[in-house]
Design a protein around this nucleic acid. Structure first.
Length: 538
RNA sequence: GAGGGUGUAGCUCAGUCGGUAGAGCAGCGGCCUUUUAAGCCGCGGGUCCAGGGUUCGAGUCCCUGCGCCCUCACCA
């Protein structure tokens, strides 16, 4: 009953308004003209918003079905009596991207997600109604064309229509046919236009989709279990970042959008799931730039009885497999995983470089990280804008300023590189190396200068974890304290979980958007996020 | 947060020294049965991002604000 009612309402809303007073806003000249054409299509007895259509081929399938022998035969013998036309027929749906009306013969180019193809609508070969429809079509309408596959005199594969119908009327004029849609703002705000008007955009997102599904497949094949943990959390933990705050009415409490799934995934290790991963969104209340969108997709994976080395190997093989998948789609089967990113050519097939933090520091500065006096002096002299840092109590921060300024730049951007052996002092949530308590069992993967994935040997001593939490809380800067202490709270349940006992484990987090940027050669995160965050219109 | 760029027709863009708002495509009317960004003839189309100022006169110069892009900084 209820469905009936809904259906009636839906159907009535599909009926075009008969009076102009029902048109919601003043239409542009273009929209008015298209509404007029739509009404004329309705007047022909056709439904301008189409209906279910079976037996559709993609444009790519149609093109590959073209039969040159049959076409030549038809061209040569088509007019002889008793001729049997063996050219294959096809039925395709696509958006009208070009139209050339020669009077009694209309050429149009249709586009679907696989490409463009030309169709011809001849007055001689379709019904009078269908030919009238063809005359009433506008650029960016979606049509269904059926006919035989042939080549024109100039050699272009064409569907010579025997029937034509409309899938939907477009009331909005398309972007310039030659330039496409170039306005960045409209590309992001109206992605639905960008996707059809710029085939490169659709291609990028199809590639991104294939990366993510192939990653899932890879992880499952390697024995990892995919899980989903809370996105709404009473405590936003697992990373040092500011969360989005939201409110739950029923319980009258504040909740936070998660900044990381880490603490929940570790609880699953406690529960006895040995290898888990999650691919999902994290939310961080920070600024936007080429590498940051407030919501972004993160892969986190944990491996019980593994360590940092275990997950480094996982990341390396996972990224290599992703690159192989992309190379096969972009270049062809068997293509090596070598992909361009801007001016770089990145070979994902070679073993990833591994450089220890202290070694890289010494290579850049000429002295070891233990030479704190020298480091303080360097910071004052070479980075005066960070002079205040030099007076800070913790030497590791001094070292790290210099490291970021001078050492990170030595990493070859074209070569995926793990930086290992970070100072323990700047890695508060990581276990120390078994043979050196001053170094953390942590490795960060950099590609093209971007931080792609951190790896850790996870803390599993509840007492150590609790004291690290406390240190983090007490280290809050006075100015930020009031605000940040509202969401930085001790996660007692997580400590309780560690008391139950978490096996030793390796864990990693991989920025899926950044990996998608690298593999699809897009310079900004906004070009690999379908609907990037924009300031609201108006 | 700082600096730079940009905003003009549905789209892509010109617009000189401050002096009647322009082009191509798209649209409308007409012609055209093998076109390739089809072609030919004709026609219409503007809140020059918004607000203020200077000026006889502002798309143009000045100020303020907003959007987008780029670089840097911050954050991670």
């Amino acid at each position: 009953m209820r469905n009936e009612h809904l259906r009636c309402r839906l159907m009535s809303s599909q009926t075009p308004p008969s009076t102009s007073s029902e048109i919601p806003q003043t239409p542009s000249e273009y929209e008015a003209q298209r509404r007029k054409n739509r009404d004329a299509i309705t007047a022909l007895g056709l439904q301008p918003y189409g209906r279910r259509t079976e037996g559709l081929s993609s444009v790519a399938q149609a093109k590959s079905a073209y039969d040159p022998v049959a076409d030549e035969d038809a061209a040569k013998n088509g007019k002889t009596p008793g001729f049997v036309d063996r050219r294959p027929t096809t039925k395709i749906a696509g958006r009208v991207v070009l139209s050339r009306d020669n009077g009694k013969l209309i050429w149009m180019n249709l586009r679907d997600h696989t490409g463009d193809i030309q169709i011809a609508v001849s007055q001689r070969d379709v019904s009078a109604t269908e030919f009238s429809l063809a005359k009433l079509l506008d650029l960016s309408d979606v049509v269904v064309a059926e006919g035989r596959l042939m080549k024109t005199r100039t050699g272009e594969i064409t569907v010579w229509c025997t029937s034509l119908s409309i899938g939907c009327k477009s009331l909005v004029p398309p972007p310039a046919k030659h330039e496409g849609l170039t306005d960045q703002e409209i590309r992001y705000r109206q992605r639905y236009v960008d996707l059809w008007a710029n085939p490169e955009t659709l291609r990028t997102f199809l590639l991104r989709s294939s990366i993510v599904s192939r990653m899932r497949q890879f992880l499952v094949q390697h024995g990892y279990t995919e899980v989903e943990t809370p996105m709404l959390q009473a405590l936003a933990g697992g990373a040092a970042a500011r969360p989005f705050i939201t409110k739950m009415n029923a319980l009258n409490i504040n909740l936070y959008m998660r900044i990381a799934p880490e603490l929940y995934l570790k609880r699953l290790l406690v529960g006895g799931m040995p290898k888990v991963f999650e691919i999902n969104r994290n939310f961080r209340n920070e600024g936007l730039d080429k590498q940051h969108n407030p919501e972004f997709t993160m892969l986190e994976a944990y491996h019980a009885f593994g360590d940092v080395e275990t997950v480094m190997n996982l990341t390396e093989s996972l990224i290599r497999d992703s690159a192989v998948g992309i190379a096969e789609q972009v270049v062809g089967p068997g293509a090596p995983p070598v992909l361009p990113f801007g001016d770089l050519t990145i070979d994902y097939g070679r073993p990833f470089e591994r450089i220890a933090y202290p070694d890289l520091f010494e290579r850049a500065m000429g002295y070891p990280i233990t030479n704190i006096d020298r480091a303080r002096k360097d910071l004052r002299e070479r980075l005066p804008q960070h002079a205040a840092q030099a007076e800070k109590a913790d030497p590791a921060l001094v070292i790290n300023e210099l490291f970021e300024a001078f050492a990170e730049g030595l990493v070859d951007h074209a070569r995926p590189t793990f930086i290992t052996d970070y100072p323990a002092a700047i890695s508060p949530l990581t276990r120390a190396k078994p043979d050196n308590p001053n170094l953390a069992d942590r490795a960060d993967l950099f590609i093209a200068g971007m931080e792609i994935a951190p790896h850790y040997t996870e803390l599993n001593d509840p007492d150590v974890q609790e004291s690290r939490f406390r240190e983090q809380l007490s280290a809050l800067e006075p100015g930020k304290g009031a605000e940040e202490s509202t969401f930085r709270t001790m996660d007692h349940d997580f400590i309780r979980a560690l008391k139950v006992g978490m096996p030793p484990a390796g864990g990693m987090g991989l920025g899926v958007d950044r990996l998608a940027m690298l593999l699809t050669n897009q310079r900004t995160i906004r070009d690999v996020v379908l609907f990037p965050l924009m300031r609201p219109e108006e």
